[in-house]
Design a protein around this nucleic acid. Structure first.
Lengths: 231, 231
DNA sequence: GTCGTTTATTGATCTTGCGCAAACTCCGGA
DNA sequence: TCCGGAGTTTGCGCAAGATCAATAAACGAC
């Protein structure tokens, strides 16, 4: 197997403070893997024996309720660690990770987590602050679900995806990975029907344009207003 | 000021593995404080300069939306650390902490967090696993808000409080701190009216009994069924 | 190309639970 | 003891959004 190139991760937040030699060490222990769109990276309840770095693509973190409904907890952009539950003393993954677009991960056995924390400067503090940020996001999410109306939630959800992964296209900003109406419904706690109606209405109003699985936001500021963000 | 007794914290999870001498060190750096019911321990947005241990009483973690609504994110029982956001690299507290019943805290300056992590065996791993558990809870909360109907959410919420802080009384199990209908509404993303109606209905059905600010669950199993926990 | 599946749209109807309003009860303080 | 405020109960009407249902468009496999 060809050696992984150091430039792959040298610039990423978790490893920013490390020298070439350390990057090399880390890469030599990593197992790279490609994931097709829709495929499972790890599954809820599975023994959590590895943690991952998402090099390219987008990942959806999903939970399934006892009654079979799916809830999308978050989307992860490239450059972030995923599946770090084992590092938090959890024996199993608390949610499933699905590849939202074709993607590439590196994986390490969970025993290396402690080693990384101790040996690589900046890794521990990055991990901590990533968790802090994640708490913040979850609190936001709960607050939103508890207080906002459906239209505001969907608007906020679309905006979040755009902010996290928007790429400029002519006429607006496009969400960089495939998203269905059902996906948005699973993120916002509503139904695909309602999401479809909202997107249709927004399209009539010139706020978004959408094709199958793709959404382009043409008037972000108006979405911000709809989302009820009181600044 | 009288020295704090070592037995106060020696048995608590974060400090379980420490010897007398270490417990002494920790206590000598702590600032104890009593909080009246309803008083603020720290406030959202405030500079996060201390972290706390809740020795006695119950604490509500609350966020206020830009539109003035309150959302109760969690209740914390005695023996747990609170306000550990600064340890996660956050410069300000992400939520407010209110004393739900008269309570007692110990506080340490945030710079000691790193010292505790390093010097006291078991502290770091306890902190990690507490965070892991907290993530789990937040994921549960999001899932619940996104998929369950109001009655199920309220039932689950009451059950959670009972499980966390229930004390046996004649005729059932009582939630150990004062809770109003409005509080439950703020936890479950509904209105106090709906909560009141639900509790009245449950009282008619013999599932709960409630006085002002106090709830006794007389038929927990029936609440479990209502909460839609498919086990 | 054709077939089958996945995704999206849209209408009609029904239900949940919110908003509003009014009254009542409990409790603490003057 | 009375008063005022906080907490609670309950009724009624309405609207947001779920559910049911049917169709259409896009795509992949063959």
């Amino acid at each position: 197997m060809a050696k992984l190139d150091e430039s792959l991760i040298a610039a990423l937040a978790p490893f920013q403070k490390l020298d070439r030699h350390q990057i090399r060490e880390i890469l030599d222990q990593a197992v790279p893997k490609r994931h097709d769109e829709g495929s499972e990276i790890f599954r809820e309840g599975e023994e959590a024996d590895r943690f991952f770095l998402l090099l390219d693509g987008f990942v959806r973190v999903v939970r399934t309720t006892p009654t079979g409904e799916q809830v999308i907890l978050r989307h992860i952009p490239p450059g972030q660690l995923i599946g770090i539950a084992p590092a938090l003393g959890r024996p199993t993954y608390p949610a499933s990770a699905l590849s939202a677009s074709e993607s590439l991960t590196l994986a390490w056995p969970v025993r290396l987590w402690a080693v990384f924390l101790e040996r690589y400067p900046g890794f521990a503090s990055h991990a901590m602050s990533a968790m802090g940020q994640r708490f913040q996001e979850l609190h936001d999410h709960v607050t939103e679900l508890a207080t906002k109306a459906v239209e505001q939630r969907v608007a906020a959800c679309v905006l979040r995806m755009v902010n996290q992964s928007g790429r400029k296209v002519e006429g607006g900003i496009e969400i960089a990975f495939p998203v269905t109406r059902a996906n948005i419904a699973e993120m916002t706690g509503t139904t695909l029907h309602t999401v479809s109606r909202l997107l249709s209405a927004w399209e009539r109003d010139g706020i978004v344009e959408s094709r199958r699985k793709h959404i382009v936001v043409t008037a972000p500021h108006r979405l911000v207003i709809l989302s009820g963000a009181t600044g």
